[in-house]
Design a protein around this nucleic acid. Structure first.
Lengths: 255, 255
DNA sequence: AGGCGAGAAATTGTATACAAAATCCAGTCT
DNA sequence: AGACTGGATTTTGTATACAATTTCTCGCCT
């Protein structure tokens, strides 16, 4: 039996570990996170920022090594992410970054279309100066990320903008729903995005901000609706056989 | 050090265990469940049926004894329930059946009001004969439960009726949201219900069924909306200091 | 009597040990 | 060569051991 410390140095199996290490090399890391929730957050962030691609295997030992905790804690984090549909756990197989099907992708956007426009409306109706300032700062951060060519951060912030709006509406439960849907949207974008530019959103977010700042609920609702349609139309959700990774699995007789 | 088998027989500490044992004495128990998901389901069911009251402590060892598994598995189940807001986990304190605040209760019903009427509409528009038959069987089961004076089962079935409708709408994500909201509603009813009769729902569910059977989407949407208002109006969500159970706990230090 | 505090008991949080299943890999056979 | 088999290896699932923290209890003091 070999101890974990020795295994870490063993040069032959570091392959999969490298993916994790790389995905977390540029982690902001204020202080070393070690709680289950902190690890889930770190992984979720990596998924948001497309540092971890859909289908990536998330080995318990690998993650444990990165964060310096035992599998017990990692497991709790992975189960949390599985609940949020960001991770797919297959019994005795392990955890993988989820790969939402086209059908699931459609459902995510249908749910967003149901929730977000109305939420934007009440956000606009309730927004106070401080809220607007927060959103404005948010858009600026998005802009900076784009200037820095930090696509990952830009993606994450772009999603967070929607979450921020839902929080202004002061409906915590709905806000949580939306948060989850946006997280999944990030995976959907990773899988099905077909347009080169993500810049189209800049304008949309700005327009939304203006409507909210003017407390124009009806306009905010409208804008959000068309914004979502825009994003959806930038996806390629046409039926097609199966995606790469799962296809391979199907052909080899494993699902 | 005392083994777990011995502790089980030790008559001095069985107190809290008894609550769990009693709550699960009448479990349907087709076959002995032992998976984490199965335990979560069992606990959720017990909460639905008001066999476990809000505020009840859910000791890991107690549950483990009931299901014959180690704390590892119980823990996973409790974390899942915590994610669904059915259980409140306080670090180093343990897991308790959640006690939604009045504010949370209001938000749950606001979310339901946002989601369910529209969902009922599309359910009505899509419903086929088989779906209607399922709903009809469901209502009959509700009726039987009430005849048997099995209030717990009646409550659970009453909630399941709503879940069933959302499933007919064929929007899995929204259906899951609604499922979670209904589970929480069960806790809210346990805490804030003020009317004696639960029979009022019988009629409402029947009317909904008719609208759905007739594929009358607009009517289903309307009926669902007023049904939710009815249920909400049967709750006492006026602000008030603190509820009994937690108060008792504070005063006696134990439940 | 009632509040306080120190130690005991119990409970949760985390790591590790062991079991079970899946994956990998070499060697064999067609 | 390629498919297949059987063991070695890796990885996950569960139980247990130990550490950290809270809760309980009882004696003490004012």
């Amino acid at each position: 039996m070999v101890s974990r410390a020795e295994r870490e140095e063993d040069s032959s199996h570091v392959q999969s570990n490298r993916i994790m290490k790389k995905a977390f090399a540029s982690e902001p890391s204020g202080q070393p996170v070690s709680s289950s929730a902190g690890i889930a957050e770190g992984l979720a962030r990596a998924i948001h920022e497309h540092r971890l691609a859909p289908g990536t295997k998330l080995g318990e030992d690998d993650i444990g090594d990165v964060y310096g905790v035992s599998r017990t804690v990692v497991r709790a984090a992975l189960q949390e992410l599985a609940h949020d549909k960001l991770v797919d756990i297959r019994r005795h197989r392990g955890a993988f970054v989820a790969q939402p099907s086209i059908r699931e992708a459609r459902e995510v956007f249908e749910a967003r279309a149901l929730l977000e426009p109305r939420t934007a409306r009440s956000a606009a109706e309730r927004a106070r100066a401080a809220d607007v300032a927060l959103l404005r700062a948010h858009i600026e951060a998005e802009h900076r990320a784009l200037d820095d060519r930090d696509i990952g951060a830009a993606l994450r912030l772009s999603g967070l903008f929607h979450v921020e709006i839902s929080k202004i509406a002061d409906q915590h439960i709905i806000a949580r729903f939306i948060e989850g849907l946006i997280a999944q949207s990030s995976l959907i974008i990773a899988l099905y995005w077909q347009r080169a530019s993500a810049l189209c959103e800049q304008h949309a977010h700005h327009a939304l901000l203006e409507a909210i700042a003017a407390n124009d609920g009806a306009r905010a609702e409208e804008l959000m609706q068309s914004h979502l349609i825009d994003v959806l139309s930038a996806l390629d959700l046409r039926d097609r056989p199966v995606h790469d990774v799962s296809l391979k699995e199907v052909l080899l007789g494993r699902d």
